[in-house]
Amino acid sequence: MGLSLVEGLYKSLALTVLSEIGDKTFFTAAILAMRHPRRLVLAGCLVSLIVMTILSALLGWAAPNLISRKWTHHITTILFFLFGLWTLWEGFTEEGEKELAEVEAKLDADWKASNGTAKAGSKIDDDLKKKQRPFLAQFFSPIFLKAFSLNFFGEWGDKSQIATIGLAADENPLGVVLGGIIGQALCTTAAVLGGKSLASRISEKMIALCGGILFLIFGIQSFLTPIGDS
């Protein structure tokens, strides 16, 4: 089938970087890192995104076994064109700035709620609090779990996840996983080390336009590639 690991890797890497910079998960990691220890935020965000990338690639790898490769190829091509137009539209309408405001508002509300709960329960015995903690929270830091869950569920169903599934159905899944993990590691590390400052210096419009053009290029390449060579 001519599935190249290197081609899958560079496509996945480029797609991930241009999709994730300025995305909800990028801003979430950046804002969490301002309020909590960076190593815990980085670990939680990275683990969640790596798990999501592997799950997405597995779904894409399994798709040709459930549907004919002809149909997965056509669906992937259509997705690239749709996501390209969608991302270009977001760039022209500057949806990125609204996304940052939404993430900040949500995290501020969660922050105030958790602080209020902590003050109200400050007199509870430490042993009783430990017993009442969720099962996972007894083994992992609450900050790690918060970063993991916010990023995992924030990424679920996002266009970058669906694009990864489509890419893994049409390219070497191992290359897609490696490229996705490298891309997620670069974006998440940048977000945690100074994401909000970085985002303010990078044009959200330009990133969205570059991402949209990249999706369209992948769509054209997929359209022109014979199915037997995809």
Rank of each mutant, 00 (worst) to 15 (best):
K11V: 15
T16S: 07
V17W: 11
I21D: 10
G22C: 13
G22K: 13
D23Y: 08
K24I: 13
K24H: 06
T25H: 07
T25P: 07
T28M: 14
T28F: 11
A30C: 14
I31C: 11
P37M: 02
L40Q: 09
A43K: 01
G44D: 00
C45S: 14
L46T: 05
L46D: 00
W61K: 12
N65P: 00
S68A: 10
K70R: 11
L79M: 14
F83D: 05
W86Y: 15
W86E: 15
W89G: 05
E94L: 14
E95V: 10
K98C: 07
A109V: 08
A109F: 10
A113Y: 04
S114C: 04
T117D: 09
T117H: 09
A118K: 08
G121D: 09
S122V: 07
D127W: 06
L128A: 14
R133G: 05
F140G: 05
F140M: 09
S141L: 01
P142L: 02
F144T: 02
S149W: 05
F152A: 02
G154M: 01
G157V: 04
K159S: 03
K159E: 02
S160G: 03
T164W: 00
I165C: 02
I165S: 01
A168W: 04
A168E: 04
P173E: 09
L174G: 01
L174I: 10
L178G: 00
L178V: 08
L178E: 03
G179Q: 05
I182S: 00
Q184R: 12
L186E: 03
L186H: 00
A190S: 11
V192Q: 03
L193F: 13
L198K: 07
R201P: 03
R201I: 08
I202T: 00
I202F: 00
I207E: 01
C210A: 15
L214Q: 05
I217T: 02
G219Q: 03
I220Q: 03
S222A: 15
S222I: 06
F223T: 08
G228S: 15
